[in-house]
């Protein structure tokens, strides 16, 4: 129970005594380590932080971070977290979820939490598979995916989580990768500083049921060529300066050789403009990801935070009508006396 003085917090203060039980080699370990190392940086005592999770491998996360925590039910973490964050604006509320949890059974709660701009930070571990139930295709699995429930290949078209969050009017949308500690930390930092709902898709390797799904971005030799790192206000150039995202015919975003591209055709990243740019960037890569893919903050804009808007309404009503008086309320309207 030590370490509650903010100044002295370390990673250890956020580790529980529970034995971590993910499969050896799972990408979740790296994410957990990064989050635990990052949390002291927040400057918030651990007892003022709440982690809420759903069901799936990601759901166990709650038990491994020594804060307050609720391990909820499948898909409902954003709803439970909405209750917590709305009731208690003084808390730092984090949701940990997976692709099945957030996008399949909990899809409705996710989009509405984002739309409302509830002050919660949603970390969605996307491994493109159902891990805990032992390997069925998920709403982010690619078409044709062969799994136990799709022996002849999946015929479902997958979600693009970033595009979905943007479509839900999310005010903060980002993507990172489980094993890139530095990048993930930077994205977490930005999300924590954001006022309102933050959605972070984290590509996470499930080495048991979907190993290598993100190799083109995770493995060093490919990553340098395929990671398109978005930085606000900077031209989008990657592959060690060789390639870029540029405006092609009909305003479409295309990947071109820098050498063959006019400087003013190279897209300059803008997190704060219209969502259409972010949406287009979310679609630069095909599904997989098997080709160059954007990571970083796609979009960050300001909008009133949900709980604050409610508190403001209550304050206004109280000023206008005076603080509620129960005895008076019970006697409002027509009454009569019997003596």
């Amino acid at each position: 129970m030590g370490g509650e003085t903010v100044g002295t917090l370390t990673k250890k203060d956020f580790a529980t005594s529970n034995e971590v039980r993910w499969c050896p080699g799972c990408g979740d370990y790296a994410i957990l380590a990064t989050v635990q190392s990052f949390l002291p940086e927040l400057g918030i005592p651990p007892h003022r932080i709440v982690f809420v999770s759903g069901i799936g491998c990601s759901g166990r996360f709650t038990y491994y971070v020594d804060t307050y925590g609720v391990h909820g039910i499948h898909g409902r973490a954003p709803a439970i977290a909405t209750g917590i964050a709305t009731a208690r604006p003084d808390l730092s509320v984090w949701v940990v979820t997976g692709d099945g949890d957030a996008l399949s059974i909990g899809g409705n709660h996710l989009i509405h939490a984002l739309r409302r701009n509830v002050n919660i930070k949603i970390l969605m571990f996307n491994n493109q598979i159902y891990g805990l139930t032992k390997g069925q295709y998920s709403p982010t699995s690619e078409e044709g995916k062969v799994t136990k429930s799709t022996p002849f290949g999946s015929v479902d078209h997958p979600f693009n989580p970033i595009a979905l969050a943007l479509g839900a009017e999310a005010t903060f949308v980002a993507r990172s990768i489980d094993n890139d500690r530095q990048h993930l930390t930077e994205v977490l930092r930005r999300a924590a500083a954001h006022r309102g709902a933050a959605f972070i898709e984290i590509y996470q390797n499930c080495n048991v049921f979907n190993d290598g799904a993100f190799d083109m971005l995770r493995e060093k030799e490919h990553a340098v060529h395929n990671q398109i790192r978005l930085r606000h206000g900077e031209p989008i150039i990657f592959d060690e300066g060789r390639r870029c995202v540029s405006v092609g015919e009909n305003g479409r975003l295309v990947i071109t050789e820098v050498a063959n591209t006019l400087r003013d055709r190279i897209v300059v990243h803008d997190e704060r403009g219209r969502p259409s740019l972010a949406f287009a960037l979310a679609h630069t890569a095909g599904h997989g990801p098997t080709e160059p893919t954007c990571i970083g903050v796609f979009r960050e804009v300001q909008r009133p935070v949900y709980g604050e808007a409610i508190a403001a309404q209550i304050k206004l009503a109280t000023e206008r009508l005076g603080p509620g008086d129960l005895a008076k309320l019970l006697r409002s309207g027509d009454t009569w006396s019997v003596s």
């Binding site: 069901i55 925590g69 909820g72």
Partner: peptide, 8 residues
């Protein structure tokens, strides 16, 4: 001092 995790 009362940090805890509960769940289903």
């Amino acid at each position: 001092g009362l940090r805890h995790r509960i769940g289903g």
